[in-house]
Amino acid sequence: MRLTLRIWRQHGPDEPGVMTTYEVDGISEDMSFLEMLDHLNEELILGGDEPVAFDHDCREGICGACGMVINGQAHGPERTTTCQLHMRHFTDGDTIDIEPWRASAFPVIKDLVVDRSAFDRIVGSGGFISAPTGSAPEAHATPVPKAVADLAFENAECIGCGACVAACPNGSAMLFTSAKVVHLNVLPQGGPERESRVLDMIDTMDAEGFGGCTNTGECATACPKGIPLHSIATMNREYLRATIKGGQRRNS
């Protein structure tokens, strides 16, 4: 098939960007979206142009590296990651708009590549259970009800791609942060740090310049892993509980 691509090209972080139009031909419907971009890039290189920069790695939907806004939708029209989106969801002659994640907490580095290190700092501020190597008790010492383990897993599935932030009209990181808070706070092992975790992570989330939640639900719709919107409610509850209890912050 033949497609018209309008892609955000931005040479560097402090340079202005612009939507640039490219025509590509010979696209197979079996190609993944990223393979379509590979195809474009091969042509650009041979034509003496610079290829379009985009993040990608595992290409099987689990590392969370890839992500672009396709026709205004984070990761495009299917509920999956960009690398698992296939060209059969487009038709010959389509015009496709491709833009980077947009949020002030995710500055553009180049073209479609953005800096998501704010997520790492949120996790670093409390998204862990302190269990230094060697200190662990026998694994069966604390049974965990299956329902609790399943709930933790459902939230631990987050791949940190940032689609929630990209889709949210406020550039909010509530879904990402809540997924980690819920994963760890519901497990008995996460109990001792339950209050400090949620307080510290929300502090960091705010300090990184993400917007607040207005409960539009766009994040959960865009999430390729189906992290549910009520994880945000659970995090809010954890936050209120910790605040009312006068929970300590690790980072105070």
């Binding site: 309008r6 955000w8 939507m19 806004v69 026709n71 205004g72 939708q73 708009d97 833009e99 947009r102 949020a103 002030s104 907490a105 949210c168 009209p169 406020n170 550039g171 909010s172 310049g209 993400f210 917007g211 607040g212 207005t214």
Partner: peptide, 15 residues
């Protein structure tokens, strides 16, 4: 105000 500051650059393709 905070929310607007968090998304300073709008998407070209709006939906």
């Amino acid at each position: 105000r905070r929310d607007r500051a968090a998304r300073p650059h709008k998407y070209v393709h709006q939906r």
